[in-house]
Design a protein around this nucleic acid. Structure first.
Lengths: 139, 139
DNA sequence: TATGGAGGTTCCAGCAACTGGAAGGTCAAG
DNA sequence: CTTGACCTTCCAGTTGCTGGAACCTCCATA
């Protein structure tokens, strides 16, 4: 099928599919004489696979690895799990970082009047000297 | 002071300081005859300010706004708070997204043996059809 | 057969926020 | 006078697309 139909089947924009082709992540199963990309069931399956993996936050490089594991009948599920585990830790780090920002912001916002006067603990905090980390403020 | 000293004072790499100059976020207070950037106390204060704001996850554009509020004696703290609030909601969304990925990953990983056999629920899930969202799996 | 519109193709640029590197100018110390 | 640590600019790359321009191709209809 043409790229447009593949896009509908897989739930991915054509632009993205062309991009995946360009970076060698998922190549069309064939090219028509007119130069049109052709995607068969297998290719569409790969596209969907990658959409799901990306949806779980895996990087494109991770997707490449996952896809090759998926296509490898002699894979060890341990390899997949290790990859997922690394990714999970990465996610945990990000969550922790965001939570820390959130905490600081909430504390500062609670102390800001939010009226039409210039007085502002948020700005005061940002302007404060010292502090080497980025977790902000000692409230 | 020269850029290197400003970098030490503010805790920001020189590269980044030059970048901030380039995009007009923080310009050096002067340029020496030799073309060297010169940063005075005020400029260094701005650099530190931006470091803190970036550390709380504010975008560079937000930093621009925050900096101009900081320099504005007639500001309303409400404007600062509104900006912070928007940012906080953005953070909340990101956290929610990551938590959702985390949940799905954990469920899948719990069901994966992680041994040397090819059998893998993680891959099975990624390959599964249907499912329009990216939150993954009905376990 | 002409034509219009909906496909497809390529390449180029841009987003965010830097970071690295190359090629070269400057300055203070020894 | 040389060495080495600074400084300068510019260009490219990172991640994962997304938009647009310019052009080609296919199919249906008048």
């Amino acid at each position: 099928m043409n790229i447009g139909d593949a896009a509908k089947q897989a739930g991915i924009p054509t632009k993205t599919i062309r991009y995946y082709d360009e970076i060698g992540l998922i190549e069309p199963s064939a090219r028509g004489e007119n130069g049109y990309r052709d995607y068969d069931g297998n290719a569409v399956e790969s596209l969907r696979f990658v959409r799901h993996a990306r949806g779980l936050g895996f990087s494109v490089e991770d997707c490449r690895a996952l896809l090759s594991l998926y296509r490898d009948r002699n894979r060890a599920s341990g390899d997949v799990k290790a990859l997922a585990d690394r990714h999970l830790r990465h996610i945990d780090e990000k969550i922790a970082e965001l939570e820390s920002m959130k905490r600081t912001l909430e504390i500062l916002m609670a102390r800001c009047h939010g009226d039409d006067r210039p007085d502002c603990p948020i700005l005061d905090n940002l302007a404060a000297e010292g502090r080497d980390d980025q977790s902000g403020s000692r409230p």
